[in-house]
Structure formats: C-alpha cells, structure tokens
Simulated scan of single mutants.
Amino acid sequence: MDRTTILVYDTLMDLTSNAPERHAKIRQNLYDQLNLPFNKQLTLYAQVLAPASSGKLEDSSDIDNALSIAMRVIETPEH
C-alpha cells in the first residue's frame, strides 16, 4: 500500500474505533494531510467517512470497499 492508501485505511480504522466526539478531528487530520479541495472533501465525507463514523463499516470487506471508494475519489482528476 502507498502512503495515501495507508493514511485512508488508518483513518477508517480510527473512525470505527474511537468515540464520535473525536471523529471531526480524525477527519480533519485526513483532509489536512491530503490537502484535498473542498469538493473532494465533501464527496469523501458523504461516500466513505460518514458511513465509517456512523458504524456502518462492520467487517473487513466493508473497510476494503470503503477504501476502494475513497481511493477512487482521491485519485479522480478534477475537471
């Protein structure tokens, strides 16, 4: 895994294992490290980070799927 993939994976794991009060800080740390434009932050939040924060990633296949979605969002060029 490359650095970005590891960072996203670690963020997903942190969101699933930490109290909701910490989630905003965890997400902001990811955004800051990736230096994502706001529209990508919104897409990443809606498609990946919010489900992780709400407990919808229940097993390793859910995490893997979320990671794949996140990487597509991050790697898709902006128009």
Rank of each mutant, 00 (worst) to 15 (best):
S54F: 15
V48W: 08
P51S: 04
K25F: 13
N18I: 02
E75M: 12
D10E: 12
R27M: 15
V73D: 01
I63V: 15
L34P: 00
I26C: 05
H79K: 12
K40R: 09
R3Y: 09
N29L: 09
N35F: 04
I26N: 04
E75W: 11
D32C: 03
K56A: 05
Q47G: 03
Y9T: 01
L44V: 05
D2F: 07
D62Q: 04
H79R: 07
Q33E: 07
A50Q: 15
E21A: 15
N39A: 14
N18Q: 13
D14N: 14
M71V: 04
D62R: 04
Y9Q: 04
E21H: 14
A19N: 11
S17E: 14
T5L: 05
S68E: 14
V73R: 03
L44A: 05
L42K: 13
L36D: 01
P37N: 05
Q47N: 09
K40S: 02
L36Y: 04
D64Q: 14
L67G: 01
E78S: 14
A19R: 13
Y45V: 06
R3Q: 09
H23I: 12
I6C: 03
D64H: 10
E75Q: 11
A46I: 03
Q47C: 06
L15V: 07
D59N: 15
L42V: 12
L15G: 09
V8G: 01
T5D: 06
P20S: 12
D64W: 06
S17P: 00
Y9M: 03
D59I: 00
A46P: 00
E21C: 08
E21I: 14
M1A: 12
S68K: 10
L42R: 07
D64N: 13
N39T: 13
A52S: 08
H23R: 11
T43R: 08
T76H: 08
Y45A: 09
M71W: 05
D10G: 03
K25I: 12
A24F: 13
V8K: 00
S17N: 11
L49F: 09
A24C: 06
N39C: 11
L67A: 01
Y31M: 02
R3G: 07
P77R: 13
Y45N: 09
L36W: 02
A70G: 04
A50L: 09
K56L: 15
K56Q: 14
Q41H: 02
N18D: 10
S53Q: 15
T76F: 07
K25T: 13
D32K: 04
N65P: 02
R3H: 08
N18E: 11
K25A: 15
D59H: 14
V8Y: 02
I63R: 08
T16C: 15
G55M: 08
Y45W: 11
Q41T: 08
I6V: 06
D14R: 15
E78I: 14
G55Q: 06
Q33H: 06
S17C: 10
Q47P: 01
L67Y: 03
Y9R: 01
T43I: 12
V8C: 08
E21Y: 13
T5Q: 14
L7R: 04
P20D: 03
T5F: 05
I63T: 12
T16R: 15
V73E: 01
P20I: 12
N35Y: 03
I26D: 04
T76P: 10
L67I: 03
E78R: 14
